[in-house]
Simulated scan of single mutants.
Amino acid sequence: MRTTRGTGRTLLVAALLAAPAAFGAGGHHAVDDATILPPGECEQEDWFTRNQGGERQLHAGFNCRAGPVELGLAGDHAHGGGGSSTAWNAEVKWARELAPGLALGVDLQPVWVAHRHPRHAMTRAVGIVTWNAAREVALHLNVGREFVRAGRDLACYGVAVDWSPRERLTFTGERFAEERTQFVRAGARWDAGRWKVDFSRAQRLAGPSPSSWTIGFTLAFGEE
């Protein structure tokens, strides 16, 4: 079935909202972790997603620590089904440790879509909790809302677990909801220090959005 340009934009916004900005979720995963970059550090995040309907999305993002918060900018280009679209999002993320192994965070992400008036499509606000239950295991909880400019606001939430059986290898499992669709995701990340590679499969359980595969690359730079 062919996808119209308007439908392509809708799919792109859904993908952007799935993307939030180490030991935790983050990256292309839907469930974020309550950590921010260290002072003086920046990070580039890129990933490529292909969903079951054949649509493809390329993401490029850049985040830096600025005082008590992490700031980010990202662009996404989606193509498939006879249409393509481009969107951008900004990010402001704050997090702090409340007790040893327990951290709380807040993430705000406004989204703009190109060639559309008004360009501002929505803003996502999410509260984040991370609990390092053991040296190899971390649990994450996200609860928030998507404030849609021209439509009904939507709840967004999810839980995730990270397991690191080896120093540089982490496996991630997620259960989350976005764009009226329920998903589970399984993935793995290889951490080589300044760069990381991750791969995952998001499987639709119920709802209109399709399942997808994603491969990502992260590069950190700044103060050692």
Rank of each mutant, 00 (worst) to 15 (best):
A90S: 13
A155M: 14
L102D: 02
V129N: 07
E174T: 04
M1K: 15
L219K: 09
G72H: 06
G127Q: 09
A125R: 07
G187E: 01
I36F: 05
V92E: 10
E178F: 13
A121Y: 03
R5H: 11
H77E: 15
L108N: 09
L219H: 15
R124T: 04
G187V: 03
E55C: 05
P208E: 07
K196W: 03
A121E: 01
L141R: 04
G8S: 12
A160D: 08
V159Q: 12
L11V: 12
A155K: 13
R124P: 01
T86Y: 08
Q182C: 07
R175K: 13
F23D: 15
V143L: 15
T86D: 04
K196D: 03
S164T: 14
R180G: 11
T86C: 02
T35E: 12
E41I: 09
G216W: 02
W131H: 11
A19G: 15
L102Y: 02
R204I: 08
S200V: 02
V111S: 05
H117C: 09
R9I: 00
W94V: 06
L141M: 11
T4V: 04
F199C: 12
F199I: 08
H28I: 08
P210L: 11
V148P: 00
R185D: 03
D46V: 11
E91P: 08
T214W: 01
E224M: 12
F147N: 02
W47P: 03
A15Q: 14
A14H: 05
D153N: 01
R189L: 08
G207L: 00
G72R: 05
T214I: 07
P39L: 11
S200E: 03
L16E: 14
R135G: 07
G53P: 07
R65A: 12
G8D: 10
V113E: 03
H120D: 00
T3S: 13
H59V: 09
E174A: 03
L12Y: 03
V129D: 05
I215L: 14
W88Q: 05
C64T: 13
L17V: 15
T181G: 09
A99M: 10
S212P: 11
P118K: 01
R124I: 01
L108E: 05
L58T: 06
N89H: 14
R166L: 11
R180H: 14
A134H: 12
D153C: 02
H28A: 08
P110S: 11
L139P: 04
T172Y: 00
V184P: 01
F171R: 12
K93Y: 09
R201A: 03
R185H: 02
E146N: 08
L139C: 06
T49Q: 06
A99V: 05
A99D: 10
A186T: 07
L104I: 03
V159A: 12
T10M: 00
I215E: 10
A87W: 00
G53M: 12
L219T: 11
D32L: 04
T218C: 04
H115D: 13
I128P: 03
H28T: 11
L108S: 09
V31N: 02
